[in-house]
Design a protein around this nucleic acid. Structure first.
Length: 569
RNA sequence: GCUCCUGUGGUGUAGUCCGGCUAAGCAUACUGCCCUCUCAAGGCAGUGAUCUCGGGUUCAAAUCCCGACGGGAGCACCA
């Protein structure tokens, strides 16, 4: 054991002791030595004894003595360590080159966009931005039975609202001829075959891992079959299958469908095509052909990775990196059409923009800001663990965005009348925001006010309350209605401070308060509270869509002249 | 049933690939204080995780290996 090593050990021991009230432990010193000097990892025993010896010595020294020795011999210890900076945003991408990353968001126009779409779009967009690359919107529209213009439009509107920009906008169906070309290529190389079995048969064979007799036909036969798919065959009569591996553990690889016949009219292409590519085939070809370098999807597609790679290998095409993330859903707020559709049909939920729903349109109406959604989603990271985020995580992000721009207004519910006998003024000016300069509003007054029923409950006769921005009122009479006197004392400490509304021009609105839609898998019959609210006439001056904070109540978004929707506390 | 993914405070995550720095960072929630003519925002402080469990490897395990258990997904001519 040479002197240099002993010195190093002593240094570490001293440093550690100094940072921990003069005491150190040999285990800690050992760990530190081993992590900085890997060459000792083979000589742990040997070095361990020396450490024990030195640690004992150091622990004998007084705290001041330790400091003195450090100052003399190892002054560098006293320089404060730099903090390790935490990574911001998403983790770096595998195999990514600055300026060369291409990502995409491929929604199917078969429903209204929701928070799950937002996650996929935002993650992919964020990566493109991070690497100064390109971002493509590709409408994945290869099932004519499901796609509709209405959904297509809603998705565009939703993405626009989120503030997501695309470099290229296209449809999967733009490339039908390319799919056909690649399909034929697979047939010609013997990697795809036409199968005319019944659905049940195919399904059974898959389950039992049995090779289908159709896969034994020769290429010529398959070409004939393929041609018949465009004319003679009826839907369901024949499909083109990929020659995968019927014995594979991954069921997706058991000779999956590449093309099938659908005679339904397509929402943009009409009856131009009847042979449609399956999802896996379309995605594989499109991602490769569009130059996608990194494709992120939610993890229910994880088993598809192998297939997509296999298809591209079979065609000798370039493969993108594929990544996966967990589905995002809020607790008690399902996104699935299977669950939402019946609720709408039964009238339990008004429409896909009902404020209780996690659709983008609902979130917007509810007063959730796109920036909040983006921050929220990025805060969830790229995990594959199931995320069932509570809605209040989003709310807290939103509150921060909304607070600075929300006008403060008074609102009163379950109103109780209050008459103030000696009010010395006929109007009052109230600032619209406590910090930010958002102007003032003038409220005309007479002796008649409303206060909230909840607040009235806490008032005792003979005590004073403070009407915010107005003054202190001494309550002189209580019998259903309240009567009070304006008192000069302007002290604002230790007094109940409440909001109020003048009776003569109070504006009545309805506030929709969305609650959790499902509780323990069961529809929550009380999920939408409708509150009758008396607010200041100034409400009428606000633009639709403006965010308001009703003082001591919470943030709401103006939905119309007569209705507001509660965003959150 | 078979296959795959996943499991860190109340909640959401970072760290896990490439084991090491006095039992874990951040956000949110909660509590207290400050600020405040709001129960908001802002500021400060605090509570709270032996990293699902059990074995193993190692001087050293949230991190590697094996097993159990919990959660999710796939087994469509949907995407």
């Amino acid at each position: 054991m040479n002197e240099e090593v002993r010195k190093e050990i002593r240094k570490i021991a001293l440093q550690n002791a100094f940072e921990h009230e003069g005491k150190t432990q040999d285990k800690i010193v050992l760990v530190k030595i081993l992590s900085t000097k890997p060459e000792f990892r083979t000589k742990v025993k040997e070095i361990g004894e020396v450490i024990t010896e030195i640690v004992n010595q150091v622990n004998q020294i007084s705290f001041d003595g330790q400091r003195k020795e450090i100052e003399e011999n190892f002054p560098e210890i006293l320089i404060p360590k730099e903090k390790i900076e935490e990574r911001e945003g998403l983790p770096p991408l595998e195999g990514a080159q600055q300026g060369k990353v291409v990502t995409r968001f491929p929604p199917e126009p078969n429903g209204y966009p929701h928070i799950g779409h937002a996650k996929a779009a935002i993650i992919n967009a964020e990566y493109a931005k991070m690497y100064d690359g390109k971002f493509i919107l590709r409408m994945d529209d290869t099932n004519p039975e499901a796609e509709r213009m209405e959904y297509h439009a809603a998705i565009k509107v939703g993405l626009d609202w989120l503030g997501i920009k695309f470099d290229v906008i296209k449809n999967t169906s733009d490339d039908m001829e390319l799919f056909y070309k690649k399909g034929i290529e697979l047939i010609n190389s013997g990697k795809a075959y036409v199968c005319t079995c019944k659905r049940d048969n195919i399904s059974n064979n898959r389950r039992e891992r049995k090779v289908c007799k159709c896969s034994l036909g020769d290429i010529k036969h398959n070409i004939q079959g393929w041609e018949k798919m465009f004319e003679k065959f009826k839907p369901g009569d024949a499909i083109l299958r990929f020659r995968g591996d019927m014995k594979a553990d991954n069921a997706v690889m058991r000779d999956p469908v590449l093309f099938r016949i659908i005679d339904e009219k397509h929402y943009t292409l009409g009856n131009k095509y009847r042979v449609w590519p399956s999802y896996d085939f379309a995605v594989a070809i499109e991602d490769s052909n569009d130059g996608i370098t990194h494709a992120f999807r939610s993890k229910e597609f994880e088993l598809r990775k192998e297939l997509i790679d296999a298809i591209l290998d079979a065609l000798g095409m370039r493969k993108p990196h594929q990544g996966f993330f967990s589905r995002l859903e809020f607790k008690g707020m399902p996104v699935s059409k299977r669950i939402l559709k019946p609720l709408i049909e039964e009238g339990k939920v008004s429409w896909y923009d009902d404020p209780r729903l996690p659709t983008l349109e609902s979130l917007r109406r509810r007063g959730i800001k796109p920036e909040a959604i983006r921050k929220f989603i990025l805060s969830l990271g790229l995990t594959k663990a199931n995320t069932l985020a509570p809605f209040d995580a989003l709310e807290s992000f939103n509150r921060k965005f909304v607070d600075a721009n929300s006008i403060r207004l008074y609102m009163v519910s379950k109103p109780i009348k209050l008459r103030i006998k000696n009010l010395p003024f006929s109007f009052v000016e109230i600032p619209n925001h406590p910090i930010k300069d958002m102007g003032k509003r003038k409220i005309d007054l007479d002796e008649n006010f409303y206060i909230s029923g909840e607040d009235a409950k806490n008032i005792k006769e003979g005590t004073s309350i403070r009407l915010l921005a107005l003054g202190n009122i001494m309550i002189s009479k209580m019998n259903g209605e309240l009567e009070g006197e304006f008192v000069k004392n302007d002290s604002t400490v230790d007094i109940q401070k409440i909001q109020w509304v003048p009776q003569k021009n109070a504006h009545v609105i309805k506030i929709l308060i969305p609650k959790q839609l499902f509780i323990d898998e069961k529809f929550n019959e009380d999920s939408l509270e409708e509150l009758v609210a008396y607010t200041e006439p100034h409400y009428l001056q606000l633009k639709e869509g403006e965010e308001i904070q009703f003082v001591r109540f919470g943030y709401c978004r103006k939905d119309s002249q007569n209705q507001a929707i509660f965003s959150h506390k």
